[in-house]
Computed example of a mutant assay.
Amino acid sequence: MTLTGVYVPLITPFDATGAVALTALEALAHEVLDAGASGVVALGTTAEPASLTAAEQRGVVDVIARVCRERSAPLVVGAGTVEAVQALRGRSEVVAALSVVPPFLRPGEAGIIAHFAALALAGPVPLVVYHVPYRTGQHLSADTVRRLADLAGVAGIKYAVGGIDADAIELLADPPAGFAVLGGDDAFISPLLALGAHGGILASAHLATARFVELVDAWHTGATFRARTLGHRLAAMSSAMFAEPNPTVIKAVLHAQGRIPTAAVRLPLLPAGPGSVRAALRHIDADARG
């Protein structure tokens, strides 16, 4: 199965005591699926997984997996180690593990290929490589991405290089068969779709989910005028959502909408400032007015 469409990497809401608000998380999962999202991601970076205990991580996956099971919706889970991907065994609703390129070490492209070959061999589900070089310090060329696509057990890539680079153009000019290219930079999703990307893993799609679904459909069906117009509007909204470290603004907007009990984040993140939140809400209101 090639992953296509909009996948929402769900935030982890916290209640007034600081505990994970599992009921609110369950409601969010239903809301984005109701709005047309193809699936959801649990324990992506938007979920603040490094700040969660092992028990909290299991609770988050349990809740989201139950929703996906009820809805027959695909679930992708953030998992970057052999132990983490092996822990997904037996979860039938999980279709892939989202695995970031190992950060900081910069092992070189040959090392990256060896890493994902070992991870794919150990895991019960296919991998989606998370390529985000401005966080990892490791660049992947189009040739290396093709070599990753050739590995058994690698199903796609979350492509988040901070824009549209020459490697994305080269890759999408002749994409590997059965390999999903999913945009991961929300503000640049429209041009990546125009080049032929299959969809996106988009934190901004917590808000205006149906608009992002419409954007993907517009590019895939050749409705280019609608796609360009909508893409410009959603890019402006996404930029507002990322005005401060993700997911601080998104959480503040969700709280302002009454969808989660607090806007709380855990250290080292700090809550978004009121100016950023007001600007993001203005973009949401403008989109709602069409």
Rank of each mutant, 00 (worst) to 15 (best):
R89A: 15
S238N: 04
V41Y: 15
T248C: 14
R106C: 10
Q86W: 10
A27F: 03
Q86N: 07
E26D: 13
A110W: 00
F14K: 03
A97C: 11
E70I: 02
R71N: 07
V129G: 00
L202E: 03
S72E: 10
A160P: 03
G199H: 03
V213M: 02
L234E: 04
D143H: 03
I64G: 14
P102K: 06
V216T: 07
L121C: 06
D165N: 13
V8W: 00
A180E: 03
A65K: 02
T81R: 12
P124G: 08
A24M: 12
A24Y: 13
L25W: 14
E170V: 14
V41M: 14
D34I: 03
L267M: 08
P176D: 04
V277P: 00
S92F: 08
V63K: 04
L43A: 06
M237C: 01
E83K: 09
S276E: 03
S204D: 08
S92D: 11
P247C: 03
A37V: 06
A19I: 05
Y134V: 14
V85E: 04
G108A: 10
L25R: 09
G200N: 07
G196N: 11
L52D: 15
P175Q: 00
W219P: 06
Q138A: 15
G39A: 13
I201L: 13
H220A: 15
P268W: 08
F104S: 04
V95F: 07
A79I: 06
D34G: 08
I157T: 01
K251W: 06
S276Q: 05
F212K: 02
Y159D: 05
A166V: 13
R226C: 07
R135M: 05
I113H: 09
V161I: 13
D185N: 07
V216H: 08
E93W: 15
P74H: 05
I169K: 08
A118L: 14
H198Y: 08
A240K: 01
A24N: 09
Q86A: 10
M241N: 02
I284H: 07
F104W: 06
L267A: 10
P191L: 05
I157P: 00
V41R: 13
G199I: 00
P103Q: 11
A29D: 00
P107L: 02
A227M: 12
L98T: 02
A96S: 08
A218G: 08
G111Y: 11
S141K: 05
A55T: 15
F116Q: 11
V76Y: 04
D285Y: 05
A110C: 00
H131R: 01
